[in-house]
């Protein structure tokens, strides 16, 4: 199986690579359009600021490639947020795969939310063998509200989207590669899609 991790200079991709290795596969870190198009599974990571990450995608032509992919794609954290319509962070357009905007947590909460939180209302085989109320590791200041694409929820002050899905596109707000056994299970599920 060919697994491509999109390497566009945004964030901690080493840990995702190691997590995939733990599952017995070798992932390629790449921004080469043909390599990504030819992969069986594509992981779209990201940590950092949305508008500058979006600029990096545009610079390398990935902004048109990603929405055109037909194999399973998994956006992680900022990757998921960039797959949404718009992000309030740096007021940037996203890739528009998920019909939802990304907005900042209200000032009444501690921001960023950092730590382990429970995920609920788990849907789709992405969450096979993962129990309701399982803890996943999250670190973020912006969130996607609940919407028709929501396939998992998490509550911080109020419930919002922990994961989204449209067709072959999946996105998770939490970091499976940092979420111990449950996170590795999710990555394993993704590789089986």
């Amino acid at each position: 199986m060919k697994i491509a991790i999109i390497d566009y200079g945004a964030g901690n991709i080493q840990s995702i690579k190691f997590a995939i290795k733990r599952l017995g596969y070798e992932a390629i870190l790449t921004k080469n359009i043909e390599t990504i198009r030819g992969a069986d599974k594509v992981i779209f990571p990201g940590v950092g600021e949305a508008s500058s990450a979006m600029m990096k995608l545009i610079d390398s032509g990935l902004h048109t490639l990603i929405p055109s992919l037909t194999q399973p794609v998994l956006g992680i954290c900022l990757g998921m947020q960039l797959m949404c319509k718009f992000s309030e962070e740096g007021k940037t357009q996203g890739l528009g795969i998920f019909e939802v905007d990304v907005v900042r947590f209200p000032g009444t909460l501690k921001v960023p939310q950092i730590g382990w939180n429970t995920i609920n209302q788990l849907q789709t085989p992405l969450f096979s063998e993962i129990a309701e109320n399982e803890y996943m590791y999250l670190v973020h200041s912006f969130y996607a509200a609940l919407c028709p694409s929501t396939i998992a929820t998490v509550t911080y002050g109020f419930p919002y989207s922990a994961a989204l899905q449209v067709d072959n596109f999946y996105g998770v707000q939490f970091h499976p590669e940092k979420s111990s056994d449950a996170g590795i299970q999710l990555l394993s599920n993704f590789l089986k899609l």
């Binding site: 190691f18 590791y137 970091h175 979420s179 111990s180 056994d181 590795i184």
Partner: peptide, 11 residues
């Protein structure tokens, strides 16, 4: 750091 990242799945 590289060795920790390879062997540990928490932040």
């Amino acid at each position: 750091v590289l060795r920790v990242a390879e062997n540990v799945t928490i932040p």
